[in-house]
Design a protein around this nucleic acid. Structure first.
Lengths: 256, 256
DNA sequence: CGTATTTGTCTATTGTTCTATACAACCGAA
DNA sequence: TTCGGTTGTATAGAACAATAGACAAATACG
């Protein structure tokens, strides 16, 4: 039985690990960002002075300033000389995952402005993984969509979707015109569809996602690999979505 | 429309970001570990030579060696002088999340040996967050359990659970004797219970979790915050589980 | 106005990370 | 045994991260 156990992992602080791959300023930036999300730091909209925080984390003031600078760069904090450092944005978006999951609709109430951008699209042969997800044979033609979602003018997710190119020819154009997966499906006579399965994992963002999601190196993404099926249970969409872990949580409701 | 888009984010490689908080060797270690999990690297059990990998990632051989050293330390790889570097363990555990989620049972078929350890326990007043989860008033006495789960002698998750101390007096002892949440509940007449909700997020592991889960600094944990309810819908357990992101994925099934 | 508080800038020093080059040790096969 | 391929070790310099101390600039408040 250990003596010192942190209460919950979300309510603790002041725990940095030295000389091990991740710079102190980044560890602190991550913790501060998280504490702001949890409301345990800057609940009144204002951060404690740099001297106080640097002592609390046990680092030099300059190291702490590097962490704050990173968060200012991200738009999480705003520093004003002589006045203090203030919280600029706090809320985490909560994405519901259920049989009726439609990412574009679930978050509508939580944010003012939500947009989806089509970055690129292509028709290509299905890889083994995609073929399995869509129930096709490997090498069958599929439409690939690369999309970016923003909320309040800040990127929140980056998705790659695949569709059966034979069943949904010109899907990319349909999506581009409607700006919605649901509306594009309606053009093919699909009035309703369901989320069959979702695999959730987490990892460091790769270079491409870092750029698209405007993150700094070392940032974490939540990865959701999902299969959507039509009313007959036939797979119609295979998608991998990378969410900015700092801004998003996935809510799995399993009520009957 | 960008021209260069990586196929899926899981099938790409060779993308490190310089001078930004996370050491190159750690970024590479993360990517190699991930590629091994995905089967895109070392599928034949053997890794490409250090020279090949270092060129592929665009770094010095020594930097790449640091990454490999970290993975050897973690038990992912095994290096043999003169022969090469070999994959030691590969599989990711998949944890199902549904109304019937019982973490201890879902993974049984995927692994030979699975154990849960009770690290510590205590009775304490409920924080606001815990009280809300359990439907109690803030400050009401709750039992807190700190547990660690291992599969094949390697830590996979670290959980903190809270229970109503008035309804479940001595719950910690019941758990210690049975080694199971489900069996412990049966002592209080609860034959069945359901997962009401699960919030999934991701973050860097804090110092305490790094130690318990035997991770190196900068590692990522998947965080699942869950509420279990009894047959009447009354909350009986509030839990926060941190999974080692490199070894675990969460599977959300939403079939009707 | 004057003072305390707070963020911003500067210089210097030390330790870690990354690069570069070279060579040793080991394995497997000709 | 010899040789090519591979991992292991050593050394030195460049770039970055962290510490330290001092002071400037802006704000808030009496």
């Amino acid at each position: 039985m250990t003596g010192t156990v942190n209460l919950s992992g979300q309510e603790q602080e002041q725990a940095v690990t030295r000389k091990s791959g991740v710079a102190l300023w980044r560890q602190i930036a991550d913790q501060v960002r998280q504490a702001i999300s949890a409301g345990t730091l800057g609940a009144d909209g204002k951060l404690p002075p740099e001297m106080v925080l640097s002592e609390r984390f046990g680092v030099n003031r300059h190291t702490l300033r590097s962490a704050i600078a990173a968060l200012v760069q991200e738009g999480v904090l705003r520093a004003e000389q002589g006045r203090g450092t203030f919280v600029e944005s706090r809320q985490k978006l909560s994405y519901p995952i259920s049989a009726r999951t439609r990412f574009s609709t679930g978050v509508r109430s939580q944010t003012r402005d939500r947009r989806s951008l089509l970055l690129s699209h292509a028709v290509e042969p299905a890889t083994k993984r995609v073929a399995e997800g869509l129930g096709l044979t490997e090498g069958a033609p599929v439409v690939r969509l690369e999309t970016l979602s923003e909320a309040d003018d800040r990127p929140v997710s980056r998705a790659t979707s695949w569709f059966d190119a034979e069943r949904f020819p010109g899907y990319a154009e349909a999506y581009a015109e409607t700006g919605s997966i649901t509306l594009a499906f309606q053009r093919y006579g699909i009035e309703d569809y369901f989320r069959k399965s979702t695999l959730v994992s987490a990892r460091h963002a790769d270079a491409a996602d870092l750029a698209d999601l405007k993150l700094s190196a070392g940032a974490i993404v939540l990865v959701a690999v999902a299969v959507n099926v039509d009313a007959d249970g036939v797979p119609i969409q295979y998608a991998e979505t990378r969410f900015v872990a700092d801004r998003v949580e996935l809510s799995v409701s399993t009520e009957a």
